[in-house]
Design a protein around this nucleic acid. Structure first.
Lengths: 245, 245
DNA sequence: TGCAGTAACTATACGCCGTGAAGTTTCACT
DNA sequence: AGTGAAACTTCACGGCGTATAGTTACTGCA
């Protein structure tokens, strides 16, 4: 009993330590995200976070070696949330209707960006002053998930659109091996031209959304939503996908 | 003679004052751009500029009321330079070959962005920490020029592509009146759907270029150039423009 | 139960930053 | 020669990231 208790206490204590630590880490990140939501990515300062938590700025160094590390962790989380959202939208759309799935994914992408503009800037823009992403990018996993997501779009469209990409000059060696490790097993039928199509598709959506998030569309049109829908119409049409009615 | 001399001296002096002032203003901006080119937009600090010029940081306040004003002026200049480059590329391409003109404009756009990544970030991203663009955007003129440029692309393609945009639901009221003031006189034959096409075209190019500039393509493909060219191929093809050989 | 070790946190300091207020120099013009 | 303004400096404030050293609290073992 004693031993058991000691053991439990021991592991429980170690667990407690770790749990407290994890909780504090989570609180730091959550406070940082709250600050970002209200004041933009630049509001993420160690001192402001510490102030909010009733701590000293230096206390945070016990959890993140540097401010950039914290930002990297935030990017990872936020990027992951984005990946969750678009994945879920894809899954929720009817599997046998490529056009619907593409629209669902794309709408979820834009919807998330407009709902979390600061998050979008954090992930795809210059996060905060002087931030240097670690080699390989800040959130390779989430980036790969999103990339895999657009590749799913391309793969779903591929049977209808293959004949339009016969003159593609892309080869496997044009892509990052890490990307192909994920893509080729998931979509064995997709040739290099299909992966290139995926990247171009991604960029096409990214272009409109990022112009909108950064306010460059606002001074041109009051109907960015309409613009996005028309772009999706053209995407689906250009891919040669039959639309269900 | 005396009177003449006095007059000359007077106006010459006033001119001298103004000239010196203009020169200092230009030097501040040029030093700022140099700092940006080497250390990124975040390296644009009043103190660093002043250090470089052998002055005090506060001396700059005689020329720009605030740091954001300086940044706004820089954005204006840089955006203007971009507009010059793409306009020149457009003009240099054969007027009777829409595909060539579109490719020339687009290549110039990407080329400028890759040659001036910091400038691209300054114009299209979060310029520097805490910067707030003035209402109406930082460089409305240059933005309009670029916008007018893409509209020229759309207008050149319009005769070939009109039939693909009959189902557009855009109306004149969907666009900013200031944009239309420029666009409608310049391209009287272009309907609302054509202006929407221009914006979508712009976004399509912007998407690939901005992903590349911000390093999000680098982790996926080693051939961004090839990707861009294939996208242009698809753009031209989707617009229904006949390619010259 | 008491003690050692360690994790968590604070205190202080340094050099950056933008910016405001006040003082000083320079110089054109009457 | 004197006046007024423009250009510039000095000093100061608060905020930032972060390095170093010191303090507190709690865990785990004897």
């Amino acid at each position: 009993m004693t031993l058991y208790c000691v053991h439990v206490t021991g592991s429980g204590s170690r667990g407690r330590r770790e749990r407290l630590r994890a909780e504090t880490t989570a609180e730091i990140k959550s406070v940082a995200l709250a600050l970002m939501a209200t004041g933009g990515p630049d509001a993420i300062t160690l001192r402001a976070i510490a102030r909010e938590m009733g701590m000293t700025a230096n206390a945070i160094y016990g959890y993140f070696a540097t401010r950039d590390d914290l930002v990297t962790a935030l990017i990872r989380d936020v990027y992951g949330a984005l990946a969750d959202v678009v994945d879920a939208a894809w899954e929720a759309a009817p599997p046998d209707d490529p056009a619907a799935r593409i629209r669902a994914w794309s709408d979820a992408f834009r919807g998330w960006a407009l709902a979390n503009p600061e998050g979008f800037r954090l992930v795809y823009g210059d996060p905060v002053a002087g931030y240097q992403a670690p080699e390989g990018g800040a959130a390779p996993d989430a980036a790969r998930r999103v990339c895999l997501g657009v590749t799913a779009l391309a793969a779903a469209a591929w049977p209808h659109t293959e004949h339009l990409h016969r003159d593609s000059r892309f080869e496997w060696s044009d892509f990052d091996p890490g990307l192909l490790d994920k893509v080729r097993p998931a979509f064995p039928a997709l040739p290099p031209a299909g992966v290139a199509l995926a990247l171009r598709l991604w960029a096409r959506l990214h272009g409109l959304v990022s112009l909108e998030v950064y306010g460059h569309l606002r001074t041109q049109t009051g109907s960015p939503q309409k613009l996005y829908q028309e772009e999706l119409d053209q995407v689906v049409r250009a891919l040669g996908i039959p639309e269900r009615t």
